[in-house]
């Protein structure tokens, strides 16, 4: 086998078959994928079908706490989980740059396999293309996923109610700050790690245990918690009131944000969910979430109100209140 990806690996010919056999099937094997048919055919399920897709182009491909492979698996699982779905399978599409190291690819495929095993969600169909050098950056991954949502479950932004509590399943901004510092080669803190992880165990636990009480779930990935909350506020015309003090954050993440002058509310998370739930069960939901490993650091960070319709209001550590609005792009200095 070659040490580097060549164009032939995507040709469909022998080189392709070789790659599929020695890498993909080796690590990802399961009864459906093994058939290598044009489409995966799945047994029937009861319930509503959830279907989601996402593409992953993260730079660097390997980063502290994970790599692009597990990120792609967890990311799509999380999108399904946020609608209350039980994920049942994934597709895996790879676009490889000519010259990409095969042993790096192998590491990525291995971590995809591990992530699938841990989550209990198999890859049932896949595809690989190779593009000439410079036409892609090392590796791009697309994953799509199917999940099943119980008949009576309807979780989305418009279910949010005034009075709902806002929970966050753990520390903020770990992924965003890790990617930024590792991409730029900044030696800020050795303890910065991406938080990539699947959230369906956590989501399923509360959806099942508190029927009707879980109104909205979102994973604040790109754009961060601030942008996600703003979207919900705009959709519902309600006010999201959050307290800076109660948002869990790793000290090293906070320090890095302060150093760079970045607002952690706009940095990406890859293993956190935000839950809007009925206030009657606040303590029980908090407790239940903390009982799942992925939700160990869950905190109630705020409340939904009707005070400032369509807005997100942050009470700062100093006690002031300020609006959190989605940014139009990179943060631009604004103080005159």
């Amino acid at each position: 086998m070659e040490k580097y990806i060549i164009l032939d690996h995507g040709s469909g010919g022998l080189a392709s078959q070789n790659l599929i056999g020695s890498l993909f099937l080796k690590y990802l094997k399961n009864s459906v994928l093994n058939q290598l048919e044009d489409a995966a055919v799945l047994p029937p399920e009861h319930g509503q079908i959830a279907f989601s897709t996402d593409s992953y182009v993260v730079d660097p491909v390997f980063f502290p706490g994970g790599n692009i492979g597990e990120l792609a698996v967890n990311g799509t699982i999380n999108d399904l989980a946020m609608r209350g779905a039980r994920p049942i399978c994934l597709s895996l599409g790879l676009i490889l740059e000519e010259g990409f190291a095969v042993d790096e690819l192998e590491k990525i495929i291995k971590s995809i396999a591990n992530a699938c095993d841990y989550a209990g969600v198999p890859v049932v169909t896949g595809d690989t293309k190779v593009v000439p050098r410079g036409k892609a950056d090392k590796i791009f991954i697309n994953t799509s996923g199917i999940g099943i949502v119980e008949e009576n479950i309807n979780i989305n932004a418009s279910q949010a109610q005034p009075g709902d509590i806002i929970l966050l399943s753990g520390t903020l901004a770990d992924h965003g700050i890790t990617i930024l510092t590792s991409r730029e080669g900044l030696q800020v803190d050795a303890n910065l790690l991406s938080d990539t992880r699947p959230l369906h165990f956590l989501a399923q636990a509360i959806v099942k245990d508190f029927p009707g009480a879980i109104h909205t779930m979102r994973d604040p990935t790109r754009g961060g918690l601030g942008t996600t909350l703003s979207e919900i506020a705009k959709t519902t015309k309600l006010c999201m009131e959050i307290e800076e003090n109660s948002i869990p954050m790793h000290a090293e993440v906070r320090a890095a944000c302060e150093l760079m002058g970045l607002d952690p509310l706009y940095l990406a998370n890859e293993g956190k969910c935000m839950v809007l739930a009925a206030p009657e069960y606040a303590e029980e939901i908090l407790h239940r979430m903390r009982s799942v490993p992925e939700g160990r650091d869950t905190a109630i960070i705020g409340r939904v109100s009707e005070k400032h319709a369509g807005r997100v209001v942050l009470t700062t550590v100093a006690g002031g209140r300020r609006l959190v609005e989605p940014l139009s792009g990179e943060p631009l200095p604004r103080i005159c």
Partner: peptide
């Protein structure tokens, strides 16, 4: 060192 670094790498230093 941190400030020196972000200026060198031009991270959020418009």
């Amino acid at each position: 060192p941190g400030i020196a670094m972000i200026m060198e790498k031009k991270i959020n230093t418009p």
